[in-house]
């Protein structure tokens, strides 16, 4: 039997079976994608002569990275940076402190249904609104300055951290938590002994990661008047002071690198 099966196969061409088995669907998807790409490309109006002129400025900016100017506007840069860092620290502390109870509430396996729904709603709203839009609204309400930025970052931290914390709690090892419950522990003790040890290392890791994100975001809040280095950066771009802009960007990159390095060390330690 196998001999005849083999005979029919010998000499036959072999092709890799396609990823999408249904031929119509496969060609439909491919054609649709190509048509979309063409349509998208056609509707983007590129002013190539303007782009060509811009190449000089692009080169100037790359050169500016080689010789950044920290000094001319050092006062502005320093104030902006300090404000960014201050906003980051304060917002991270407040944001993390608020996200822990909300994260607990948004975990289906430990929170009662009404609490769960409320907490999930908070998380959903916070995640759906981007930092910059929240910042615009808060600036309109609270006026210019770092308070709006601080509130924006705190709010964004809650959405990010609560969601991940809740997911972490939902996927934790049930038997450990059950063992603690079986000892007759009350709810708070149960959280402290059965849940906290399981999720704490990841919570610490995520918190540091969020500090990193908050710092990066704090650099743009200034564009809409919510404090931080963004305003200085915007001014530098407006005046084509690429060397000052390059200096600011380099400082941001270095701080982000340092934060990543520190978070690597801390994460290795807590795990």
């Amino acid at each position: 039997m196998s001999a005849t099966e083999l005979d029919t196969l010998i000499g036959r061409k072999w092709r890799k079976p396609p990823f999408v088995r249904n031929a119509t669907l496969r060609w439909g998807l491919t054609a649709g994608f190509v048509i979309y790409l063409i349509a998208a490309y056609m509707t983007i109006e590129v002013n190539w002569s303007r782009v060509y002129e811009g190449l000089d400025r692009g080169a100037a900016f790359v050169m500016a990275f080689m010789s950044p100017d920290f000094l001319t506007r050092w006062g502005d840069i320093r104030d902006g940076m300090i404000e960014s860092v201050v906003m980051t620290v304060a917002a991270s502390v407040v944001g993390i402190a608020i996200s822990i109870p909300i994260g607990l509430g948004a975990a289906r396996n430990i929170a009662p249904m009404p609490v769960y729904l409320i907490c999930r709603a908070i998380v959903a709203v916070s995640r759906a609104l981007q930092e910059i839009i929240v910042a615009i609204l808060l600036v309109a309400i609270f006026g210019f300055g770092p308070l709006a930025g601080f509130l924006t970052l705190s709010f964004a931290t809650i959405g990010f951290l609560s969601k991940l914390l809740a997911e972490d709690i939902e996927s934790m090892d049930k038997t450990q938590a059950e063992a603690i419950r079986a000892s007759g522990a009350r709810w708070t003790q149960w959280i402290n002994y059965g849940v906290q040890p399981q999720v704490l290392p990841r919570l610490i890791g995520l918190s540091i990661y969020r500090v990193d994100i908050n710092f990066r975001e704090s650099a743009i809040l200034g564009l809409v008047g919510a404090g931080g280095i963004g305003a200085t950066l915007n001014t530098a771009f407006d005046r084509y002071e690429y060397d000052t802009a390059a200096a600011i960007l380099l400082i941001i990159i270095v701080i982000v690198m340092a934060l990543e390095y520190i978070s690597g060390i801390i994460r290795a330690k807590v795990q």
């Binding site: 196998s2 099966e5 083999l6 196969l9 010998i10 036959r12 061409k13 072999w14 092709r15 079976p17």
Partner: peptide, 26 residues
Amino acid sequence: LRRYPQSDVDEAFRLLDRVGLVHMAD
């Protein structure tokens, strides 16, 4: 591009048949 010479493809089928897996090729 998975365009192997036909002789290679034939040999692959023969070997798979020898070890009893020709029906599993894809």
